[in-house]
Design a protein around this nucleic acid. Structure first.
Lengths: 205, 205
DNA sequence: GTCTATACCACGATAGAC
DNA sequence: GTCTATCGTGGTATAGAC
């Protein structure tokens, strides 16, 4: 039997993603675990099963690699937001907020290390990388601002609190959970519900 | 006139703190601005007006310097908490929470770079440094847990939400403001009041 | 697409003069 | 208490074979 022309028996799709994707995955995981500056290209290469020099076939520099990861992390967040929006566009405000909180937290904890790596490394990323990614971040923030503004218009959210501040406070509450929440020990649904309840009604007795 | 015996005319107290303190101040500011790994001892020394080798007269290593900064940052937070506690111990729950939120934010933005540097560098600090500082962090967290528990007992806080989670959500909201709040552009009092209001009553309309 | 080999540099840290 | 000088290590990145 001759090998099928369309799929030659090469060790590509069999065990794991191909080189570039492997580098991306492992680098994101390492940046998340140890930080950008603390992670060496040699370490990334080793985790991806190759030598340091080979990484440069896929990425022009360590900064370019970081930028690709930050961009991917942002795409995951935007996708999560869009899905939540499609699912709850016609529901009440509390339901919509709950869905978006759940979606954001899922992007952090359930859709790979990219979004989490974005959140934790952005602050100390090299200025050139930060600047390159700012437009994507602004777009995501604008999606939330639009959602909250819509709910204020419908009087589902109190009009007194500035929604810009509310959004930043909510983002801080959600993103900082990377430092302590372990999805293996607690339910993400329960956590998302607690965040939503506290955001919605507060803690007053 | 002979120079007074108690204060010889040496260039010590005149312009700025002495060596060790200068290193501490500048290192904290640099760790906050750029991160621990991204900041070199040469850069710290230059900011403190000395050469790299001289830093080792004051600190055994870069890690020891970081540990001293993290510890100082924690002391500032604890002091802020104690002050707020003394000032509002007999007041109602909402007033006490407001004072503590204000105090924590003041520690981040108004009492030097130590607390802010602690918050931003702890996550990626070398494990040995993290381990050494964990007891102090636990003690501060216990102060908050005790406060919130007391308010639950008095039914000033809703007993349904687990206070451990509420504390982490509140810490995340406050600490993450380091990434965007500029005390030169906005009032810290106003910001603290917004955080307190959102924590207490939520955003529901 | 990955390898080996290496250039080049910045880093943390140390030793000893002053 | 600060300096100069330097050591050794590990970092990013490149060149060229395979």
């Amino acid at each position: 039997m001759a090998t099928p022309a369309a799929s030659p028996a090469l060790p590509t799709a069999a065990d794991g993603p191909e080189g570039r994707q492997r580098v991306l995955d492992e680098a994101a995981a390492l940046f998340l675990a140890r930080g950008y500056a603390e992670t060496s290209l040699r370490g990334i290469a080793a985790a991806a099963g190759m030598k340091a020099g080979s990484v440069y076939y896929h990425f022009a520099s360590k900064e370019a690699l970081l930028e690709a990861i930050l961009r991917r992390g942002m795409e995951v967040m935007v996708q999560a937001f869009d899905d939540a929006e499609s699912a709850t566009r016609d529901r009440d405000g509390r339901t919509r907020i709950a869905a978006h909180v759940r979606a954001h937290l899922a992007a952090l904890f359930e859709h790979g290390p990219y979004t989490a790596a974005h959140v934790t490394t952005f602050r100390t990323a090299p200025p050139a990388v930060r600047d390159a990614i700012v437009p994507e971040r602004d777009a995501y923030e604008a999606m939330w601002t639009r959602l909250l503004g819509e709910l204020v218009t419908k009087s589902e959210i109190d009009g007194d609190t500035p929604i810009g501040l509310s959004r930043l406070i909510l983002f801080g509450a959600m993103n900082s959970s990377l430092e302590w929440f372990d999805p293996g020990r607690g339910s993400l649904d329960d956590f998302a519900e607690t965040v939503t309840r506290q955001l919605w009604k507060g803690i007053a007795g």
